[in-house]
């Protein structure tokens, strides 16, 4: 079980309609998110391996810390 959960990857997704562009997520998950010149998040689009626990953890911080609940983690099956 524990092993299977690490197979595959994830992406962090933002709903741009909900997002207010204060860029909180870029502070919470700096390895996955940086902000554009207007403060809106640009998120790494390449899937990240679930085995990368640090990245997964910071993505979770961002999801929980987003004041607009605009972020979501989605599992994908292919990852590097």
């Amino acid at each position: 079980m524990g092993v299977r959960r690490r197979v595959g990857g994830f992406v962090l997704l933002v709903n741009p309609i909900l997002c207010d562009g204060f860029g909180h997520c870029a502070e919470l998950a700096p390895d996955l998110v940086h902000v554009d010149e207007w403060g809106y998040p640009i998120i790494v689009t390449e899937p990240v391996a679930l085995a990368n626990l640090a990245a997964l953890e910071s993505a979770r911080y961002a999801v929980r810390g987003c004041p607009r609940q605009a972020l979501r983690i989605e599992r994908v099956h292919d990852a590097h």
Partner: peptide
């Protein structure tokens, strides 16, 4: 003008 990258970009 719902999304920042479109509304400002």
């Amino acid at each position: 003008r719902q999304c920042g990258p479109c509304a400002f970009g």
